[in-house]
Simulated assay, not measured.
Amino acid sequence: MLNWIGAAIILLSGGLAGLYQAQQFATRPRQIRELIQALQRLETEISYGFTPLPQALERIGKAMKDPLSSLLKCAADGMKPGQGWSVEESFAYALDSYWKQTSMKSAEREVVRQLSIVLGTSDRQDQMKHIALAASQLKHEEAAAREDQAKYEKMSKSLGLLISALIVILIF
């Protein structure tokens, strides 16, 4: 009886691990798209709203879903007068604090990090160009993420269950 319960637990845990990995493949393109939308909103805030960067990031963060919302709010908090961090330092801290909660990979993180270096250090037109460049790079990453999702999402689900079934067979 205990053998069957153990086998069921192994099958359940393997199946859940496969579902979790499949969810990561499905979530990544959506989060990249949300990040692109946040950059487009930031571009609008800079070009038309003349909003200071911390306020713009705070406003955009309120409109986003977690974990991107938390990331943007954390970056905005670091730039407020009490903290006094630069844009790059604020984003570095926010990325270190919240990036692991996202499904995105290091390529998207590097795009955000590169953008944080130039934000707030140049004129409005130059910042808009850099934001547009970052959005275009993220669109390429989104396309790659969609390809990965199409290739690996279903396989991850099946593989988790099959590996757990193999373990059960080897144990018995």
Rank of each mutant, 00 (worst) to 15 (best):
Val112Lys: 00
Ile9Arg: 03
Gln24Asp: 09
Glu153Lys: 14
Ile9Lys: 02
Gly61Asp: 12
Ser136Ile: 00
Thr51Arg: 10
Tyr152Leu: 13
Thr121Arg: 15
Tyr20Asp: 03
Ala145Cys: 01
Asp126Tyr: 07
Ala92Lys: 12
Ser116Asp: 02
Ile169Met: 13
Leu161Thr: 12
Arg124Glu: 06
Asp96Phe: 07
Glu108Met: 08
Gly120His: 12
Glu108Asp: 09
Ala26Cys: 14
Pro54Leu: 04
Lys80His: 15
His140Thr: 13
Trp4Glu: 05
Gln40Ile: 00
Gln24Gly: 07
Gly120Ser: 14
Gly120Ala: 13
Ile9Leu: 14
Trp85Val: 03
Pro54Ser: 05
Gly160Leu: 00
Tyr48Met: 05
Ala132Ser: 08
Gln31Thr: 04
Ile117Met: 15
Ala17Ser: 12
Gln137Phe: 11
Ile32Lys: 02
Arg124Trp: 02
Ser70His: 10
Ala165Val: 09
Ile9Asp: 05
Leu95Phe: 02
Ala135Tyr: 04
Thr27Arg: 15
Leu19Gly: 00
Phe172Glu: 01
Glu34Leu: 12
Gly6Cys: 08
Tyr93Gly: 10
Val168Arg: 00
Ala132Gln: 11
Gln149Arg: 08
Tyr152Pro: 04
Ser116Gln: 07
Leu39Gln: 03
Ala135Met: 07
Ser70Gly: 15
Ala26Ile: 11
Ala8Tyr: 11
Thr44Phe: 13
Gln125Trp: 02
Lys65Ser: 12
Tyr48Gln: 11
Gln37Pro: 05
Ala8Met: 14
Glu89Thr: 09
Phe50Ile: 05
Thr102Gln: 04
Trp4Val: 06
Pro54Asn: 04
Ala76Cys: 09
Gly49Ala: 04
Gln137His: 12
Trp4Lys: 08
Ile32Glu: 02
Val111Ser: 11
Ile163Cys: 04
Leu119Lys: 02
Gly82Trp: 15
Ala76Leu: 07
Met64Ala: 06
Leu35Glu: 06
Leu16Ser: 05
Leu53Ile: 11
Thr44Lys: 10
Glu153Asp: 03
Lys154His: 08
Lys100Pro: 13
Pro29Leu: 03
Tyr48Cys: 05
Arg124His: 06
Leu53Phe: 06
Lys100Val: 15
Leu162Thr: 07
Arg30Glu: 10
Ser106Trp: 12
Gln149Thr: 00
Ser116Thr: 08
Ala22Gly: 06
Ser106Asn: 14
Met1Ile: 09
Ser106Asp: 14
Glu34Lys: 14
Leu72Gln: 09
Leu119Asp: 01
Lys139Pro: 03
Ile171Leu: 13
